[in-house]
Amino acid sequence: MITVHLPSRMREELDLSSKSVQVEAFQSGSLQELFNCLDKDIPGALPFMCDADGSVRKHIKVFVSDEQVTDNFSNVNLHGHENIRVIQAMAGG
Protein backbone atom coordinates (compact mmCIF):
# COMPACT_ATOMS: atom_id res chain seq x y z
CA MET A 1 0.00 0.00 0.00
CA ILE A 2 1.22 3.48 -0.82
CA THR A 3 2.03 5.88 1.98
CA VAL A 4 1.97 9.63 1.40
CA HIS A 5 3.87 11.83 3.85
CA LEU A 6 2.30 15.26 4.11
CA PRO A 7 4.01 18.57 4.92
CA SER A 8 3.36 20.24 8.28
CA ARG A 9 1.67 23.28 6.78
CA MET A 10 -0.79 21.10 4.86
CA ARG A 11 -1.62 19.23 8.06
CA GLU A 12 -2.32 22.56 9.76
CA GLU A 13 -4.41 24.01 6.94
CA LEU A 14 -6.49 20.85 6.44
CA ASP A 15 -6.71 20.05 10.14
CA LEU A 16 -5.10 16.61 9.81
CA SER A 17 -3.95 14.73 12.88
CA SER A 18 -1.61 12.31 11.09
CA LYS A 19 1.67 13.06 9.38
CA SER A 20 1.17 10.36 6.76
CA VAL A 21 -1.76 8.65 5.12
CA GLN A 22 -2.31 5.40 3.32
CA VAL A 23 -4.48 5.73 0.24
CA GLU A 24 -6.49 2.53 0.30
CA ALA A 25 -8.47 3.22 -2.88
CA PHE A 26 -5.27 3.34 -4.96
CA GLN A 27 -3.61 0.11 -6.06
CA SER A 28 -1.46 1.16 -9.01
CA GLY A 29 -1.45 3.82 -11.70
CA SER A 30 0.01 7.30 -12.10
CA LEU A 31 1.01 9.78 -9.43
CA GLN A 32 -1.81 12.03 -10.66
CA GLU A 33 -4.31 9.21 -10.08
CA LEU A 34 -2.89 8.68 -6.61
CA PHE A 35 -3.30 12.37 -5.77
CA ASN A 36 -6.85 12.33 -7.17
CA CYS A 37 -7.62 9.47 -4.74
CA LEU A 38 -5.85 11.35 -1.94
CA ASP A 39 -8.01 14.40 -2.60
CA LYS A 40 -11.14 12.29 -2.17
CA ASP A 41 -9.85 11.06 1.21
CA ILE A 42 -8.56 14.50 2.18
CA PRO A 43 -10.52 17.24 0.43
CA GLY A 44 -8.18 20.14 -0.29
CA ALA A 45 -5.02 18.03 -0.64
CA LEU A 46 -4.76 18.53 -4.40
CA PRO A 47 -5.37 22.31 -4.37
CA PHE A 48 -2.69 22.59 -1.68
CA MET A 49 -0.19 21.07 -4.10
CA CYS A 50 -1.42 22.30 -7.48
CA ASP A 51 -2.68 25.51 -9.08
CA ALA A 52 -6.16 25.75 -10.60
CA ASP A 53 -4.69 24.73 -13.98
CA GLY A 54 -3.26 21.55 -12.44
CA SER A 55 0.41 22.55 -12.45
CA VAL A 56 2.43 21.90 -9.30
CA ARG A 57 2.92 24.94 -7.11
CA LYS A 58 6.47 26.26 -7.26
CA HIS A 59 7.03 25.92 -3.53
CA ILE A 60 6.07 22.23 -3.55
CA LYS A 61 8.23 19.25 -4.45
CA VAL A 62 7.17 15.61 -4.55
CA PHE A 63 9.55 12.70 -4.02
CA VAL A 64 8.83 9.07 -4.95
CA SER A 65 11.04 6.57 -3.13
CA ASP A 66 13.62 9.28 -2.36
CA GLU A 67 13.80 10.57 -5.95
CA GLN A 68 12.51 14.01 -6.91
CA VAL A 69 9.63 14.02 -9.37
CA THR A 70 10.49 16.27 -12.30
CA ASP A 71 7.94 14.97 -14.78
CA ASN A 72 4.23 15.62 -15.06
CA PHE A 73 2.38 13.63 -12.39
CA SER A 74 0.42 11.81 -15.10
CA ASN A 75 3.68 10.42 -16.52
CA VAL A 76 4.93 8.99 -13.21
CA ASN A 77 3.83 5.37 -12.80
CA LEU A 78 3.50 3.83 -9.36
CA HIS A 79 3.44 0.14 -8.49
CA GLY A 80 1.65 0.40 -5.18
CA HIS A 81 4.44 0.09 -2.64
CA GLU A 82 6.25 3.42 -2.92
CA ASN A 83 6.79 6.05 -0.25
CA ILE A 84 5.61 9.44 -1.46
CA ARG A 85 6.83 12.63 0.22
CA VAL A 86 5.34 16.05 -0.38
CA ILE A 87 7.80 18.67 0.84
CA GLN A 88 7.03 22.36 0.95
CA ALA A 89 9.63 25.12 0.82
CA MET A 90 10.54 26.28 4.33
CA ALA A 91 12.61 29.17 5.65
CA GLY A 92 12.20 28.93 9.40
CA GLY A 93 15.18 29.42 11.62
Binding site: P7, S8, R9, E12, I87, Q88, M90, A91, G92, G93
Partner: peptide
Protein backbone atom coordinates in the same frame (compact mmCIF):
# COMPACT_ATOMS: atom_id res chain seq x y z
CA UNK B 1 21.15 25.82 3.44
CA UNK B 2 18.98 24.73 6.34
CA UNK B 3 15.44 25.60 7.34
CA UNK B 4 12.45 24.35 9.25
CA UNK B 5 8.73 24.70 9.91
CA UNK B 6 7.18 23.32 13.11
CA UNK B 7 8.62 19.81 13.60
CA UNK B 8 9.85 19.50 10.03
CA UNK B 9 13.08 20.67 8.41
CA UNK B 10 15.75 20.09 5.80
Amino acid sequence: SGSMYAQEGY
